[in-house]
Design a protein around this nucleic acid. Structure first.
Lengths: 191, 191
DNA sequence: TACGTGGCCGGACAAATGTCCTTTATGGTA
DNA sequence: TACCATAAAGGACATTTGTCCGGCCACGTA
C-alpha cells in the first residue's frame, strides 16, 4: 500500500551526503500541498525523503483513483521524464513531506554515467510494474471484502493513517461501499 | 490493447541482422503453445518478432486475468530479470509467433554496454507503467459498456482476432456480462 | 453559545454484474 | 454420417455495488 524503496533511498542519501551530486535539492511540503498537478508540465524527478504522499488521478467521471501511496525512497515524475509529457497524475502530501528533486537533464546524465544508479532505477520501475500488475488483477477478481482484508493484512495501521475516502479511492470503490463492508466484517467477528 | 514497441523492434532487428549480437536466438510457437508458465523459473528475456501472445495470470478464484496482449517489439520476462523470481504470469501464443530470446546474463551485459539499448529498455518499462496505470483507473471507474466502447475504438478488429472469453478476461468481467453488454449496445444502435 | 463545515455512518432503493444452466452453432474426427 | 468438444448466446435469479439521502459528531469561529 505505501510503497518504499530502501535501496534507492540509501543510495541517494549517500550521493547527497557525499556532496558528489549537487544536482539534488531538498524541498518541504505541508499536508494537502500538491507537488505535482495532473496536466501540468513536469521538469524534474522526485525522490521521497520522508513522509507520505498520495498519487492519484481524477477520472472523467469525477472520482479520484489513487495509484499508489509513496513513502521513503520511492520516486515519481519518472514517467513524464522520457516523453516530455504532462503529468498524468497529481501528487499530494498527506503529512509533512520532504523530497529530493533533480532536474530532468541532471537525472538523465546521472542515468548515463552512474551504472549503479541506472540499475537501481530500472529495478524501481520493474518493482512498480510488478506491483501494479498484481494489484490490478486482484482488484478485478475479488469482492470488496477480500480486497479490504488483504489491505489490512499488509498494512494493519491502515485506518489510523489514511482517511476513509482515500482508502475507498485506492480500492476503486465508493465510501458507502467501504463502510458497508467494514460493518459486515465486524459483525462476522462479533455476531 | 495489443501492445507493440516499434523503436525497440527495429533496434533489435538491426542488432540481429548486423550479427553484432550473437546472443539472440529465434524461436517459433504455434497457437496455444506456452512460452512462459506462471510459477516456473525464467532464464531469458523475450522480444516479440511477429504474431500475438496473451500475458495472463490465474487468480486464486480460478479466473484468468489478462495483463496485456503483446505484438511486434514488445518484451516480456523482464520483470523476472532482476530478482531471479518465478514467472508471475503465463505467456501463450494466440497465432503463429516468433520471438527473439536472450539469456539473462547476455541481456544484463547488453544493458550495461549499450547506452541506446539501455535507454530503449527504460522507455519500454515506462510505457508499460503508464499503460497499466491508465488502464487500471479506467477499469475501476467505468461500467462495462464504457470499457467495451473504448476498447473497440482503440482496436476495431477486436472481435475478429480475440476470442470472447479472452476479451472478457482482459476486461476483468465474466463472459455473460460481455455478451449482455454487446447485445445492449447493438440494440441502442438499432432500436 | 450558535452556527457552519467536513468526516463518518448507514437506510432505502436502483443499477451493474455474477452464477447457474440451457440452447444453438461450428469444426474436427471416428 | 454421427458424435463430441468448444465457442457463443441468452434466460432467470442472486449478489454486489452505486446513488441519493439524512443524521450524528467533532471542531473551529463569529
Amino acid at each position: 500500500m505505501i510503497r518504499t524503496n530502501k535501496e534507492l533511498f540509501s543510495y541517494i542519501t549517500n550521493l547527497v551526503l557525499s556532496g558528489s551530486a549537487g544536482s539534488f535539492s531538498e524541498h518541504h511540503y505541508a499536508p494537502l500541498q500538491r507537488i505535482l498537478v495532473e496536466g501540468k508540465n513536469v521538469f524534474s524527478v522526485y525522490i521521497m525523503k520522508s513522509g507520505i504522499v498520495k498519487c492519484y488521478l481524477t477520472t472523467d467521471t469525477g472520482s479520484n483513483f489513487i495509484q499508489e501511496f509513496f513513502g521513503e525512497g520511492e520516486l515519481f515524475g519518472e514517467i513524464e521524464l522520457m516523453d516530455d509529457s504532462y503529468s498524468y497524475c497529481t501528487i499530494e502530501a498527506i503529512d509533512d513531506v520532504t523530497v529530493y528533486k533533480i532536474q530532468k537533464s541532471d537525472f538523465l546524465r546521472l542515468l548515463d554515467h552512474d551504472k549503479k544508479f541506472n540499475r537501481l532505477f530500472i529495478e524501481a520501475l520493474i518493482s512498480k510494474l510488478k506491483y501494479k500488475a498484481t494489484r490490478h488483477s486482484y482488484n478485478q477478481s475479488h469482492i470488496i471484502e477480500d480486497k479490504l482484508r488483504r489491505l489490512k493484512m499488509k498494512f494493519p495501521e491502515l485506518e489510523e493513517v489514511i482517511s476513509k475516502q482515500d482508502i475507498a479511492d485506492y480500492l476503486g470503490i465508493t465510501l458507502r461501499a467501504l463502510n458497508r463492508t467494514i460493518k459486515t466484517m465486524s459483525q462476522e467477528i462479533n455476531p
